[in-house]
Write a protein that binds this DNA or RNA. Structure first.
Lengths: 192, 192
DNA sequence: TTTGACATGTAAGCCGTTACATGATTTA
DNA sequence: TAAATCATGTAACGGCTTACATGTCAAA
C-alpha cells in the first residue's frame, strides 16, 4: 500500500527491465543504445537504482553463472514492480521541462565575444548537429519497415527533427550574429 | 592565480551581474525573464551563488537603503570577476549536452499505454508547444527592430524553432502512433 | 603482455531543489 | 484584513556524477 515516491530514474530503470530481464552491465548498454539520447544514465547510477528497487520489492535478482564470464545478477520485475510501473505510465503527470542549454547562454552573451569566437562556437554546434542528424536518420531508416518499433522510431525521429531545427536556426542566424559581432564586439578579451 | 573551478551556474550569475549590478531579488526576476527558458535558476540558488562569488572576490556587495522597501545588497563585478567571466566566455569548451526528456520516455514505452493515454499525452505536449511558440514569437517580434538585441533575439528564435519542430513532429507522428496504439495496446492497466 | 570486453560495486561530494523562516509596505 | 511585492536568507535532503576498487577471460 505504502506508495514510495521515486525519482523518474527509478521508473525508467523499471521500464527498461520490463522490456527484458537483464543484469546491470547489460542494462547500461541497452539504456545507452535505446534511450541514451534523451535519458542518459551512468553505470553507477543504474547499479544504485537496481539495488533500491530490489529492496523495495519491485525487482527480483537471480544470480546467473556463465561459462566464460563472471557471474551476473539478472533482475526482473516483480508483480508489484509491474503494477507500480504501469501506474506511472498511466497516471503520472507530465511536468513541463526546461532543460539547460549552455550554448544559448554563450549566444546570450554574444556581444562580449569576438567574431572569431562566435564563429567557432557556431561551427562546433553545427558539426555536432550534423553528426547527430546522420545518426538519427540511420536509426529512423533502419526501423522504418518494422511497425512494432513505431514508438522507438518516433523518439529517433524526434531527435532528427530537433537537430534539423538547430541547423535551420544556424543557417538563418549565422549571418546576423556574425554581422552583429563584426559591428559591435572588440577583440577577444577586450569586450566591455 | 588560483583558478577555482566553478559550476556553470556561477559563470551565468557572473554574466547576469555584468549586464547590470543588481540585488538577489532583482537578479532572480531578470534571470527568469531573460535566460529562464534555457537556464532556469531558483531564487535560493542565486543567493547561494552570490554569496560564494563574493567570498571568492569575484563580486562586491554594497548595501543600498531604500525609502519604501527593505535595504538591499547590490552586487557588482570586481576586476577579477570580470576577467574570470571573460576567460570563461573566450576559452571554456562547449560540452555537448544530452538533456532529459521524460515525454520521449513515455513515447518509448508507448506500447504499454492505452490509445487514450497516448492521445492525452500528445495533446498536452502540443498545447504546451503552442503556448511557448506564441511566447517566443512575441519576443522575437518585439526585439526585431532592435539590432543591439540581436543575440538575445537569437535565443528566443532558437526556442521558437524548437517548438515548431515539436509541432511538426506531432503532426507527422500522431496518426502513426495512434494507429499503432489502436492495433497493439490493450486497455489501460492491462498492458503486458 | 597489454588491451578490451565482461562484470559489480563503494565512497565522496557537489549541485540544486524544496521547504522553512522573517518582516516591511502597498493595494484591494 | 488579506494578498501581493519587495527583500534575504537557512537547512535539509536527495540526485547524480566522478573517481576509485577489483577481478576474469579472450584476443592482439
Amino acid at each position: 500500500m505504502a506508495e514510495p515516491k521515486l525519482p523518474a530514474t527509478a521508473y525508467v530503470v523499471l521500464g527498461l527491465v520490463s522490456v527484458r530481464p537483464a543484469a546491470g552491465h547489460e542494462l547500461a548498454q541497452f539504456a545507452e543504445r535505446s534511450i541514451g539520447y534523451f535519458f542518459p544514465l551512468t553505470r553507477s547510477h543504474i547499479y544504485l537504482e537496481l539495488d533500491r528497487l530490489c529492496q523495495l520489492g519491485l525487482l527480483e535478482a537471480t544470480e546467473v553463472d556463465q561459462e566464460r564470464f563472471p557471474t551476473k545478477r539478472v533482475y526482473e520485475l516483480t508483480e508489484k514492480g509491474g503494477s507500480i510501473l504501469q501506474r506511472w505510465l498511466d497516471d503520472a503527470e507530465l511536468v513541463p521541462e526546461r532543460p539547460r542549454n549552455l550554448f544559448l547562454v554563450r549566444v546570450f552573451f554574444g556581444d562580449r565575444m569576438s567574431q572569431e569566437r562566435i564563429e567557432a562556437l557556431l561551427d562546433e554546434y553545427e558539426q555536432e548537429a550534423r553528426q547527430r542528424s546522420e545518426q538519427f536518420t540511420e536509426i529512423v531508416d533502419r526501423l522504418a519497415p518494422r511497425p512494432e518499433s513505431a514508438f522507438r522510431r518516433a523518439t529517433a525521429l524526434y531527435g532528427l527533427r530537433r537537430e534539423e531545427a538547430k541547423l535551420q536556426w544556424l543557417a538563418e542566424m549565422r549571418p546576423v550574429l556574425l554581422a552583429q559581432a563584426r559591428g559591435e564586439a572588440t577583440g577577444s578579451g577586450a569586450a566591455r
